[in-house]
Design a protein around this nucleic acid. Structure first.
Lengths: 216, 216
DNA sequence: AATCTCAGAGAACAGTTGTTAACTGCATGG
DNA sequence: CCATGCAGTTAACAACTGTTCTCTGAGATT
């Protein structure tokens, strides 16, 4: 039987197919610099690659399907990097620096991917919105799991930890978007660090007061 | 001379023109529930209104121009409401409740406007992105100006106040977007309040430590 | 060596798009 | 009361869209 489903012989023809597929993804990403996915046309993409319009169907059902693939390409490999960065730092200034540096490096290396995520996070294509939402929720859960291991998390409820993690993740996306909108990235990075310091301060004093009205 | 430029006689025909213009805006907003502005067609809008395609040009240069008008419609009247809400509350739990209630009410009353702003904030049409960015920056400046009047702002630099204000404004947009993505709004509102509490805590302890490395 | 598979090409389709031009008719200002 | 302005109409245009069907030719399989 075909156990060829997850690891087929990397035949010389499968390779060419994936090269075309990648070319379609690259071209789409490039075209999405100046429009939204919901206005990206299939012919537009194939024209940019130099293949026939019908070739598109060999790889994607429609442009929404291509968009979902782009989400995976943009965020898939980021999980391990982010978790590793958090694990290597404590809850302090070094973590703030490392986190901002991570975003700056990502935006510099993959600006088109970053723009795509920021744009389509609330974009007009439901499938893609949900794919990005799912990935960001996953990020938040991973960050929360890392936080839970740290001494500062003592006394925190799982719900509050997840809320905190979501704020960090959302802040990363917003910082990425802000970086894309400027050519002088230092002020943006600086502001992002100050905002993270504020979040850190909030985290440290979260348990100072009782969570609900206890008559004070 | 024509001093008719800012306040013409509200002729019975000017009224009809603005009715058509408003119908175009309404139809566009409705169509934008399931797509982005960059894919919104001029004919699509006029068809929904029941008017000839060419009538569009009597009101807007193109759909991007219409988008800019939508930004004004969505956010223009919100400035006074927001400032009033902040001015009527101190830096405490009541302000948090009032702010979240304000967003919830806005999203419930004008869901299409809220969706439009969240979607096009990072969308594919530069003119509209910049219009929204300008409005949000204005919001942040107004919030910062209100903060500056309060005793808790003593010792804060103008830059830090603006950074704090931006976090509040960005948080409002994100909360609005989260509310739109769910039909059970109470958990979202609750999370938003907890996040605001965290920001408030961060604000209160901002001056506890020196702003830059002083050896410690 | 003969066969099969399948990525991509080609042509054609019905429908859509933005934009121009010339028009109609009504509310308005002199 | 007549002439003008102008919101909206009608018709036509070249260009573009997604999708279907048919075909080709080179890798893979036997």
């Amino acid at each position: 039987m075909s156990h060829t489903l997850d690891g087929p012989a990397p035949g010389a023809r499968q390779a060419q197919k994936q090269r075309t597929r990648q070319a379609l993804l690259d071209a789409a990403l490039h075209l999405l610099a100046e429009q939204s996915l919901s206005s990206l046309g299939l012919r537009e993409v194939t024209r940019a690659v130099g293949v026939a319009p019908t070739a598109f169907y060999r790889h994607f059902r429609d442009t929404a399907d291509l968009g979902v693939a782009l989400v995976e390409e943009a965020l898939g490999s980021l999980h391990s990097t982010l978790v590793a960065t958090l694990a290597a730092t404590g809850d302090g200034e070094e973590r703030i620096t490392a986190a901002v540096d991570l975003i700056v490096a990502y935006v510099r290396t993959y600006p088109a991917h970053a723009r795509f995520i920021a744009r389509e996070q609330h974009g007009g294509v439901k499938q893609v919105r949900e794919a990005i939402g799912g990935q960001l929720t996953l990020f938040a859960e991973e960050v929360a799991a890392q936080f839970a291991k740290e001494p500062e998390a003592a006394g925190w409820s799982a719900e509050d930890l997840l809320m905190l993690a979501r704020m960090y993740v959302d802040h990363m996306v917003m910082t990425a978007s802000a970086l894309l909108g400027t050519d002088d990235e230092e002020p943006v990075a600086d502001r992002a660090r100050r905002q993270l310091r504020l979040l850190t301060l909030g985290r440290r004093h979260w348990l100072d007061a009782p969570p609900e009205g206890s008559g004070g």
